[in-house]
Amino acid sequence: MSSTPAASVLFVCVHNAGRSQMAAGFLTHLAGDRVEVRSAGSVPADQVNPAAIEAMKEVGIDISDQQPKILTTEAVQASDYVITMGCGDACPIFPGKKYLDWALEDPAGKGVESVRPIRDEIKARIEALIAEIDAQQEK
């Protein structure tokens, strides 16, 4: 059964290698095809943070096939929600979008032990976001 996603969400951080990739992984895993998921970075890294990949693998989500992507105006325009995680002034702002800024510690350069609490905080925020999207659909 093919259905149109209830919403589209873009996660943005500087390198698109840790926080935004974990958030996209959780949202894809928990919401399935109900939500269209994108992630990007203002200055993308060469690869996804290995500690982020490992931390997500511990909770049964594989993000090892993801590649950091450059933030584009088109990605922002195509998204209902734009969730920033420390991309600073590089985040383009468009009217009519729902912007959320999640203050999350950057996992860059940290080991998996330090990434776990960040991962868990992201999961809690994703669960709240899904509840909000679902509530919007019921209106």
Rank of each mutant, 00 (worst) to 15 (best):
D80F: 03
E58C: 10
L71K: 12
Q67L: 09
E58W: 08
T84D: 15
D80Y: 02
A90R: 15
P50K: 11
E74R: 14
G60C: 04
A51H: 13
A90L: 13
G86D: 13
A52G: 12
A78L: 01
I83L: 09
I70E: 09
M56W: 01
E74N: 09
S79P: 00
I83C: 07
K57E: 11
T73I: 02
T72M: 03
N49Y: 10
K57R: 14
P68E: 07
Q77T: 08
A90Q: 14
V82H: 13
E54S: 06
A55Q: 05
A52L: 01
I83K: 07
Q77N: 08
M85Y: 15
A51M: 05
Q77R: 13
I70A: 08
I53F: 06
G60Y: 08
A78Y: 00
L71C: 04
Q67S: 10
M85S: 15
A55Y: 00
I83P: 06
E74D: 14
K69V: 11
N49V: 07
E74F: 08
G86S: 12
D62C: 00
Q66C: 03
I53W: 06
D89C: 03
D89P: 04
E74S: 12
V59K: 05
C87S: 15
T72R: 08
A52T: 09
E58Q: 14
A55R: 00
